[in-house]
Every structure is written in structure tokens, then in C-alpha cells.
Write a protein that binds this DNA or RNA. Structure first.
Lengths: 334, 334
DNA sequence: CACATCTATGCACACGTTAACAATAGTCTT
DNA sequence: AAGACTATTGTTAACGTGTGCATAGATGTG
């Protein structure tokens, strides 16, 4: 149906090789010949067949963007920002293939032929195997959002431990001493890091966390809600709660209101992620902002650098988080 | 580097044709031969080169998933649910290529060779040209989320007019008579439909909407916030506000609280979309649920049907919206 | 047994592109 | 003017796979 370089060649009275060279702007071809060929190509509405190109050039023009899961546990905002960030970098140059790692029954089909490079937005330790598979196949790779120690892998992430530390320190500086923690989804590295940063802050300020002040969570609204209900039922309630993400913080705030109490007057809440709606909730949520879009941009940029210069750079890049102070934390009198 | 059918052929002592047939489970090949070849393929960790396959079979194994824009105006939850829905249907069979239509400088590269089918999640009338381009090229296509009249195009969407009608009717049935409207982003079909449904409800119940009770919006939190501030500054305030999406509803609620008033006691608010956080905001938001994930599933399913049976079905499928009653609407005494 | 039929496999080519090498004509050098 | 060099184009093969047609052997049939 669609025109090929051979069709153009016939019309131009040259060989298809000449057409190929002309359209690739080879210096071997005379300028007027090129121009003549370009015009004919235009007229025929010629589009190169990328499958044929790929076959001979051994490039797919595909970039994989893999998430730990698409089905559950990935927050919508996170997902969106990551795709946006990557997309803004690659634009026309590559096609972006989005997949959930848990959709793969076998990594068999992930080959150097089908992906020029792969970006993994990793949220779980379980991603280890696929990372190794890709690294072994020699496919250029960057892992975002989670630290990874496989050799020869680019790694871009935010310093969440640091972010959680700041959030904890902030609570202490606002006069809080009875501070509780709602943890993130088990197995997610982010859950560990945020918890670790928070604990380091508490330790740093000499504040201990009683067992009753710790609740597990699943990163969703429901679990934040339940955890806060637990805290509220305690004899001695915390004055502040650090939630390992915003969604849980929302659930927690809801529980406070349901109990007839106020945030931040009766209890302060801090989140993590600075989700789009954090600013508009009542009260506006004090939270830690991860620069996800920036991480994805940075990651995509470095990956493309590696691909196009045939390098194998392998570094770990940590990007700063930022504490966004809003209205959900009360300043306590000493 | 990686093994090809020719490598397998040598080891098996057959021609590459036989290998090709065996691996495609052709009935022409003896069962034992097939088995022998399969084992060798397994040992060599053979993966078919999809570029070569595509070239000869004239199929790309690619499905395009195009959004009106990735940069702005698309809500994260919407985006996420759409990808999830489609992804759950296609699984291994196709690669999902995600793009923003506004990233295309030219549709030239969208050809039958590079996409087996395309799903457009359309949010704007501006998507007309690309829809026509794709339809002209004869690429199987389904347009989601927005009605489209181009011939030969599958179309799956929710009946938003109906949804908005119900929301409006509900407000009236709860005793409201002074009802205001915050509109959606101009140019988005959804904005028109929601407005139309709401207006039809008002008309149906013989309620008129004064000009001061209409405010434009941009589907974002900020614009909802501003619009509600306007309403609150009126001499005669509305008792209820219908917001064309949840994000604006959140902004509106925030404005109410800032003015020292309560939702729903002093003013009722209804949203549209049932975003993930709608249930956990305070007060929990009464809203209209669009079955986006279901729309995407349904759309993907029908598209695959068309592709694989070489059909050209062209229907418009309307999926029901659902009014989710929560806490943001007050029952007024007659 | 001669012929037709069926089964399993191979040969050769095609898909659309790029690239190594060959060929031709023109230009320069001495 | 012969040889060397340059600029431009063509010839041919290659990438990995699938398929129409030919082929060879086995089986059936009257």
C-alpha cells in the first residue's frame, strides 16, 4: 500500500540505495539529487518502515517504561508524573512502551532487539530479578525511585530518608514529643527509607517511639484511616502523626474528624509525596515533596546519553526532597 | 548475538523453514520434529525477532494509547485508570505505546505498519484531525470518553449528560432550589455534556439559573476555589453547587471552609468523576462516578475484536454513570 | 504394479531497509 | 597522456522471518 524507497527510486530514475542515502542525508549524494528525491518522497507521502529499519540497524526505537505494578499499590499521581517526565524528554525520538512488571509471566521477551533501553520505576525489592535480567542482556537501563546495587545500572532517586528525617525534625521543632508513625506498604523500599529517616530524627532528638505509636499501613486511604483510629483509641494519644504517604495522611485526617477532633488543633499530621490534592485538602497537608517528574527526566536523559554514546555510565544520583509546610501541623507551646 | 531460527535449524539438522513452522505449531510438521525443535529452542534461549516478524507479517504488535495531552489538563487518576483498563485486556499480546497527541508535530509517522490499532482517550474537540488521519489510513481505531462522529470509528464513553442530570435532580430532590454551577474546561466535550445534563435537570424541575450562579472553571483545584469564592461573595448565595469535576469541588470546599462556613451545613457541593480521594476528603464528596476503567476495558476489547477478526465494526457504546452519595449534600427542609 | 494421494520437509523468494564493495566518469598531477 | 584520485551512483548481500511451490517418500487403490 504505502510507498517504499523502491517506488521513489523508479520515479527518480535512480537505485533504491541512492534514495536511502538521500533520505538519510548522506554526504555521498549530490545535493540536487537529494532535493529531487525528497520532493518525490513528499509527494508519495513516504514514511520509512521502521520494522525494516530496525531489522537491519538493530535498533527498535522503543523505550520501555516499567512500573512495579499497574494493578495496585501504585498511586495515580506518581504514575502520571513519571510518564510525564520521561515523555517530555524523549518526545519524537522513541516510542514509550508502558508495562507493569507483574504483568510479565516471563522476561523472555525482553531482549536487546525489542528495547533500545529500559526505565524501571521501581517500588519494590521484588523487582530484583527483572533488573538482573535486563542488566545481563546488556540492555541500557536506569532504575528510578529505589536504590539498587546491581552493577552497571544507572540509578536516580530522591533521598527519602533525608526527607523523612526533615519531617520528623520539623515535628520536634514545633514542640511535639509524642509522635506516632504510620508505616508504608511492606516490601516497598520507600517504606523502609521513610521509616528509617523518621526514626533517625527521633533518635537524634532523643525521643522514643512506644510500640503503640507504630502502625503498619498499605499506602492507601483505608489503612491510614484504620491506623489513626487505633491511635485515637489509646489512653495516651500522640500529638502528631507522621504518615509515610499522603493518601494515608488523608485517611488519618478523616478518622480524626470522625472522632469529633480537629487537625491540627488536637492532633498534627504530616504526609509524604505532596500529591496534587495535598494543597487543597482541609487542612492543607504539610508533606514532603519528592521530585518525581524531575527524577524521571533526569533518568531518561542519562539513559539516552548512555544509549546514544554507547556508554555504560553507572552512577547513583540522589535528588533532594523538600518539606512543604502547610496547615496540618500545630505549633505546641513548650 | 541471540539465537535465530537458522541456528536452531543447524542444530536440529533441518531447514529454517521447518523450524519456523514448528515454532508456530504448524500442522504440517511432525509432532516429534516439533518437540525436538522446541527443546533446542529452549536450550538456546531463543526469542523471535519481532522486527523481522513484523516486516513479513505486516503487523507491529503495537497498540497506541493516545491521550489528548500528557502535559496538562489530564487528571492523574483518569490517566491511571485508562492505562490500567487497557493494560488489563491486552496483557502479553501487544505492546502498549503511550503518547500525548499534542506531542505530535506531524501525524506522518502514524502508519498501519507501526500500529496494529489505536485507542484514543479523547478529551477535546481538537482531537478531530488525528482521528481523521487514523481513520483515513485504515488503522483500527477506538475513541474513548468523547462522542465522535467520524464514520467507521468505534466509540465507547460514559453517558455524562445523564450523570450530570442525575446529580442535578438529586440536589433538587434534597430540597435545593438555589443551585450554582462551576463549569469544566472550555473546549472539552465533557464540560459541555456535564453542563448540558445539569441544565436539563434544572429545566426539568423548573428551576432557573441566574447568571451569577454560573462560573467558568479549568478542571483544576485552583479554579474551583476561585469560583466558590465568587459565589460566597454574592448577596444571595446558592445553597448548593454542582462542580463539573471533583478537583474543582475540592477547591470549592476549601473556599467554603476558609470563609468560616461548613459543607454541607451551609452549602452543599457535588462533584463529578469519583476520584480516588473523593471518599476520604472531609466531608466525603457526593459525586458522579464515570466507569473509566470499564470504558477502557470495553474499548480495548472491542478494538482487539476488530483487529483480530478483520472487522470494521463501528458502534457507539454508552456506559452508565453512577451517582455516589456521600456527605457533601445537605437535606433541606421544605 | 502403476498411479494417485497424502505427509513431511526443503528451496527460493519476499518483506523494506542499510552498507560494503564495485563501477563509472570526471579531474588532477607530472 | 597515463595514472591516481575524487565524486557520485549502482550492485549485491544482509538482517530474521514466513510462505508458495516443488520434492521425496510413504501409503492407498483398483
Amino acid at each position: 500500500m504505502s510507498a517504499t524507497i523502491k517506488d521513489i527510486a523508479k520515479l527518480a530514475g535512480v537505485s533504491h540505495t541512492t534514495v536511502s542515502r538521500a533520505l538519510n542525508n548522506s554526504p555521498l549524494i549530490q545535493e540536487e539529487t537529494k532535493e529531487r528525491i525528497r520532493i518525490i518522497a513528499e509527494q508519495l507521502d513516504y514514511t520509512p518502515n521502521y520494522n525494516a529499519k530496525s531489522l537491519v540497524l538493530d535498533r527498535s526505537y522503543n523505550l520501555g517504561l516499567f512500573f512495579t505494578t499497574l494493578s495496585n499499590g501504585t498511586s495515580a499521581g506518581f504514575f502520571y508524573e513519571a510518564i510525564r517526565g520521561v515523555n517530555s524528554v524523549i518526545r519524537d525520538r522513541y516510542q514509550l512502551i508502558v508495562k507493569g512488571i507483574d504483568d510479565y509471566t516471563s522476561f523472555h521477551s525482553i531482549t536487546k532487539k525489542s528495547f533500545d533501553g529500559i526505565i524501571i520505576v521501581s517500588q519494590s525489592d521484588d523487582d530484583g530479578p527483572i533488573i538482573e535480567h535486563i542488566a545481563n542482556k546488556g540492555i541500557p537501563l536506569v532504575v528510578l525511585n529505589r536504590p539498587v546495587d546491581t552493577a552497571g545500572v544507572l540509578n536516580v532517586l530522591s533521598d527519602e530518608e533525608q526527607g523523612a528525617f526533615h519531617a520528623g525534625a520539623y515535628l520536634v521543632n514545633q514542640g511535639h514529643k509524642k509522635i506516632a508513625l504510620i508505616e508504608g506498604r511492606k516490601g516497598f523500599k520507600s517504606a523502609q527509607n521513610r521509616k528509617a529517616g523518621f526514626e533517625r530524627a527521633m533518635e537524634h532528638y532523643g525521643i522514643s517511639i512506644p510500640a503503640a505509636f507504630r502502625m503498619p499501613g498499605l499506602y492507601d486511604l483505608e489503612s491510614g484511616h484504620q491506623a489513626m483510629q487505633q491511635f485515637l483509641s489509646l489512653e495516651e494519644r500522640p500529638t502528631a502523626v507522621f504518615c509515610c504517604n499522603d493518601e494515608m495522611a488523608l485517611g488519618a485526617i478523616k478518622a480524626v474528624f470522625e472522632a469529633g477532633l480537629q487537625v491540627p488543633k488536637d492532633i498534627s499530621v504530616v504526609g509524604f509525596d505532596d500529591t496534587v490534592f495535598a494543597a487543597y485538602v482541609t487542612p492543607a497537608l504539610t508533606t514532603v515533596r519528592r521530585p518525581i517528574e524531575q527524577i524521571s527526566k533526569e533518568g531518561a536523559l542519562r539513559l539516552l546519553g548512555n544509549i546514544e554514546n554507547k556508554l555504560h555510565t553507572t552512577e547513583q544520583v540522589l535528588l533532594r526532597t523538600e518539606l512543604i509546610v502547610r496547615e496540618s501541623v500545630q505549633l505546641l507551646q513548650a
